[in-house]
Design a binder for these strands. Structure first.
Lengths: 329, 329
DNA sequence: TAACATAATGACAGCGCTGTCATGCAAGTC
DNA sequence: GACTTGCATGACAGCGCTGTCATTATGTTA
């Protein structure tokens, strides 16, 4: 049906391996021959078959990224930059959505491994020990992103969530707020931040008037509903801390719809520094994570592993985070 | 290194083709044998090699979706549902980001075709005729989504952008606004909507006081900046229409930061019905597109083509759109 | 000029799987 | 008993490519 290496080779009057070399190891071929081959490729409209190439060379030139859902905007910059860096190195990015359930995870890993990816990027730690074992056994590079934790599979690029939670608390304390409500999503990482945040607040004698835990995945709507509940129950509070900017957006909308001024009547703090955070009214105080940098570091580490540059099997990059103080606190 | 079909076959004391059948055509194998084979699979930790399987069967079980960037939230629901439906049918979704440039497009299509996908989904029409020819020549199912147009490659799932633009104008006219500013992103589809919208407004005698064209990809920040410019130049206007909800969000923030009331002082209308639109203050009037439905229809059409159910090469599904009137107009 | 290094090209096998055709066997039919 | 039928299983080839090793052409040195 479609042209193969042999077709091109015949037309260029060379062997098929020479055509292969023109495409993959051009320095091994003389310019004259390469020119002839390229002409033949153009003429036949030949497109290499990576299934065949990957099968024999044991390199699929595929990197799988597992994310909870494409709707999760936290990873936008990371995926975009990672994809860009990988494309430059002739790798492709396969996005796999994981519902994060433990039973589905093992099947997902199987269906991923079936493509024999050259590398794997996890935006969340694996729940299932079986899935973990499979990856370990297969020995492919696995980069866990967006969190520094104790039991890395091999490589980690991220930051400390408890530290981020603590930093949020410290800002609130410093600003002098004394009665704080938390609007928080119930995921594992959010909970890490919340625990550290609460601990720091309590240590400083700040009163936590309410904790409103919202479902996952996060939606702006949950933030607005949470704030509605808090205000209806007339929880006296001078600040609301949110696990993510989306919730803060909803919280601010509900507060404003009731005529409350932010931050005079109630302060609002977010986390994530999503694109809109700098442009809300008032502009949102939040914690910024450099997602683009994370994406670049992932690509760098991965490519090092793939080219055999990096010998050590484990490495940890802490990209940190940054408090961004704006108008809402 | 890792277990192959032959390893499993040896352990289960059957031929390798029988193992293959247990996995791919279980109805051809007796229960007793299947049980033995499954035990052997579990014991060896065998994971099929889709590169090998795809090479010989000419089916990669891969569907490539081309999107401008993962940060484009318009396609969230579509991708999520498409991915779900495909996963149920044992297909995997490879997300390819296209910068939409004409020269890059052809290379992108090549690198996609190199994986021999069973189907291709385009969220934007191809710019480059060369790329178009390649797809046509290859003969794989191509679904163009999110727009109904005149020159489909084969299958279309979407709606009419000019009609949507017109509907936006009609709502503004009906509400009695007379001096309208447009804040619009400069992409091709947006321009289709804008042209139709403007035409309808002009026909109704509505005055278009300003057109502010923002860069692509769209950011909330552009909306706020645009509104700042409009207000600084004191364009008298009683309504602002935006090409997308994100811009509307920025526009509302800037208006409110200056103490303007929405919609009393200035009305704001968006498009897209992104998740937050229902929860802003005030809640945003917009045009809703059923992205989930589009995703499901794409999957349905694709699977029909892949199973050979659908004979006709072209089909068009118009999913329409819906005006959602909320508080902002 | 012989001996050797280097560059350019090719022959060959086989990666792991599945489509196709062939075979064996029990049950049913005349 | 000879046959058909249907089910379960296997043998075999080959998908399109690249790793490895072999071969030839060309240049370089003693």
């Amino acid at each position: 049906m479609s042209a193969t290496l042999a077709d091109v080779a015949r037309l260029a009057k060379v062997s098929s391996i020479t055509v292969s070399r023109v495409l993959n190891h051009p320095h091994l071929v003389s310019e004259k021959t390469a020119k002839r081959v390229k002409a033949a490729i153009a003429k036949t409209g030949y497109v290499p078959n990576l299934l065949a190439g990957g099968l024999v060379s044991q390199r699929s030139r595929l990197v799988v990224v597992v994310i909870p859902t494409v709707a999760n905007r936290v990873f936008d910059a990371t995926i975009e930059h990672l994809g860009q860096c990988l494309a430059d190195a002739r790798y492709q990015l396969l996005l796999a959505q994981s519902d994060l359930s433990e039973e589905g995870e093992s099947a997902l890993i199987d269906s991923i491994l079936a493509r024999r990816p050259d590398g794997l990027v996890l935006t969340h730690p694996l729940q299932s020990p079986a899935a973990r074992e499979k990856l370990l056994a297969r020995g492919i590079p696995v980069i866990e992103a967006w969190e520094i934790h104790d039991r890395p599979i091999d490589t980690l690029v991220g930051f400390s969530h408890p530290d981020a939670g603590k930093a949020m608390a410290e800002h609130i304390i410093e600003r002098g707020y004394r009665k704080v409500a938390l609007v928080w999503s119930g995921d594992a990482r959010g909970t890490q931040r919340r625990t550290a945040c609460e601990q720091r607040l309590i240590d400083a004698g700040v009163h936590i008037t309410a904790r409103h835990i919202t479902p996952v995945p996060v939606l702006v709507g949950y933030g607005r509903e949470a704030m509605k509940a808090l205000l209806d129950e007339s929880m006296g509070m001078d600040a609301v801390i949110c696990s993510i900017d989306l919730l803060a957006q909803g919280v601010m909308a509900e507060a404003q719809s009731r005529g409350l001024r932010i931050p005079e009547d109630v302060a609002v703090m977010g986390y994530g520094n999503l694109e809109f955070a700098a442009y809300t009214h008032p502009r949102l105080t939040t914690i910024a994570i450099d997602g683009a940098l994370i994406g670049q570091l992932i690509a760098q580490r991965l490519l090092q592993r793939l080219t055999g540059e990096l010998v050590t099997r484990t490495s940890v990059d802490d990209v940190g985070f940054r408090l961004v103080v704006r108008e809402s606190t």
